[in-house]
Structures are given as structure tokens and as C-alpha cells.
């Protein structure tokens, strides 16, 4: 009879081979979900999402209309500018929420959470996808909440316009969150992040056609605005909110540049994350 040698201690715990392959979607979904769970567990952030646009609107809207009324001879200027400013305001809210949401990346790194994610058998793209989609979802929700104020800004838009605007807000959220990811990845302090963000964010927004149109700007200012990918996002949002209005660029160009912006920053995030080095990872 054949004898079978049985190991004295058979490992009962090793992982089956099918799970040894690198997966993308499950880890990405898990990281995305975590961003949302963390968001609603921190009630102050939830309140902020609802309250900040409201406050912003009350203060800025009221301030602007009074100022412009005194200047404009027939009062029409004020309502015109509030309407013009509305898409820019949405983009600003999205911009801040998106980029600041990636501060959590620095926090994850400092708290050690990121270390266990980096040591897991997942593709690094899953980390980018999960984190960026998580931040983008929160930023997009923030932007969508702001659309409630459409009637107040004198924007009367049909269901298609709303859907189009929501899509543009989603794309802008994604691109800006990925931009935040690229900036936050190599950093280890939130203070440094703040400094860089202020340096990048404010000009990015001011020169995006949110406050004044690129067509009216002159010389180098105009060039900068044309180079700013956010300019096309703001313009695309105008296409959605004011379908009848003729915008600086055509809707097609706006959409293409915005999609291109998404692709470039996503690839950029992917590239910064995928470096394996002789230096400590975290």
C-alpha cells in the first residue's frame, strides 16, 4: 500500500490562487466608499456642504447687486452680472471642495492608513481611482446642491440643460480632485498643502473666466486664460446653463478640452503613484 506523507502542520490558511491576481474595481470601490462614509460621519462637513453655498450666495449676491445697482443706470447691469458670475461661483465651490478633499491623502499618510493600502496586492491605479472618485463625488454633490439657486440667479434652464450642467460639474470635480491628488501625494504636511493650494487655486479660478470673460481680457492675461484648462470648464457650464447664449468657445471645444483635462490629470496622478523606489514609500 502506498504511504502518503502528510505534513505535520498543514497550513489551513493560505489564499487560493484565484485571488492572487491584481484587481482594480473592488479596492477602488472600497476606497471610494470610505471617502463617503468618512464624510457623513463628520457632521460638520455635511452641514458645510449645505450651508456654505447658502452663505456665499447671500453675502456675495446681495453685495454685488447693490454695488452694481448704484453704478448701472437702469439696474439691469446688476442682474446681468449675477447671472454671469453664477457658473463661476459653482466652479469655485467645486474647485475648493475637490482640491481640499485630497488633504485627506496627507492625513492618510500621516495616520499610517496609506501604508497598509500601499502594502496591499492592488494596482496603484485602484488607489488613484478610489481616492479621486471619492473626492470628486463629494465635490460634485456640492456643485449640484448649488444648482438649486438657478432661479435666484435668473437662470431658467430645462431638464437637458440641468443634466448637461451636472455632467460638466462632475467632470470638473474629477479633474480638479485629480489635480489635488498630484499636489498632495508627495506632501507630508497639510500646512504645506495649504500654501501650494493658495498659490495655484486662486489664480486658476480668477483666470478661468469666472469673474471676467476671456474675450474682454487683453494681452498676456488673455493668453493665460486661454492656457487655463478650467476656462473651458467654466465656459462649458455656461453652455449648459445658458443654452441660448453664445460663449467664448464652442460647446464642442469646451467639452473636448474638459475631457482632455480629466485624462491628463488622471494620468498624472497615476504616474506619481506608480513609482517604486529605493526610498521609503510612506
Amino acid at each position: 500500500m502506498a504511504t502518503v506523507t502528510v505534513p505535520t502542520r498543514v497550513p489551513t490558511n493560505a489564499v487560493s490562487k484565484s485571488t492572487a491576481t491584481t484587481s482594480l474595481w473592488t479596492p477602488a470601490y472600497s476606497l471610494w466608499r470610505r471617502e463617503l462614509v468618512r464624510f457623513y460621519r463628520q457632521k460638520a462637513r455635511v452641514v458645510g456642504v449645505i450651508a456654505s453655498p447658502l452663505l456665499f450666495w447671500l453675502v456675495l449676491g446681495a453685495g454685488f447687486s447693490k454695488t452694481f445697482q448704484t453704478q448701472g443706470p437702469n439696474g439691469g447691469v446688476a442682474s446681468h452680472y449675477v447671472g454671469y458670475f453664477f457658473p463661476g461661483a459653482i466652479v469655485m465651490i467645486v474647485l475648493f471642495t475637490a482640491i481640499f478633499s485630497m488633504m485627506s491623502l496627507i492625513q492618510d499618510r500621516n495616520e499610517g492608513f496609506l501604508l497598509s493600502v500601499l502594502a496591499a496586492p492592488i494596482s496603484r491605479s485602484a488607489i488613484v481611482l478610489g481616492k479621486v472618485l471619492g473626492g470628486a463625488t463629494l465635490a460634485a454633490i456640492q456643485g449640484w446642491v448649488f444648482l438649486v439657486f438657478c432661479p435666484l440667479a435668473g437662470v431658467h434652464v430645462g431638464p437637458f440643460g440641468i443634466l448637461y450642467s451636472m455632467s460638466i460639474i462632475a467632470l470638473a470635480s474629477f479633474a480638479l480632485t485629480a489635480l489635488g491628488f498630484i499636489i498632495a501625494w508627495p506632501m507630508d504636511s497639510t500646512q504645506a498643502f495649504h500654501a501650494v493650494i493658495n498659490l495655484v487655486l486662486i489664480p486658476l479660478w480668477l483666470l478661468s473666466g469666472s469673474v471676467f470673460p476671456a474675450s474682454g481680457a487683453s494681452g498676456w492675461m488673455k493668453t493665460l486664460m486661454l492656457l487655463n484648462p478650467l476656462t473651458y470648464g467654466v465656459d462649458a457650464l455656461r453652455n449648459g446653463l445658458f443654452p441660448a447664449q453664445i460663449t467664448t468657445f464652442s460647446p464642442e471645444i469646451n467639452l473636448i478640452v474638459t475631457l482632455g483635462f480629466c485624462a491628463v490629470v488622471f494620468i498624472g496622478s497615476w504616474a506619481v503613484v506608480n513609482r517604486r523606489t529605493n526610498k521609503p514609500a510612506a
Binding site: E111, G112, S116
Partner: peptide, 20 residues
């Protein structure tokens, strides 16, 4: 390496997801 804003079970589920 735990996320303190998640529950014990959520932390484990998340880790499990990372390992397929």
C-alpha cells in the same frame, strides 16, 4: 493603520476588499 472614523467591521471589510 486603522481608520478611526470607521467601525471595526468596516476596517476589516475594507482590508478584505484590498486583498480581493
Amino acid at each position: 493603520s486603522l481608520d478611526v472614523k470607521l467601525t471595526v467591521a468596516e476596517n476589516l471589510m475594507h482590508q478584505g476588499h484590498l486583498y480581493g
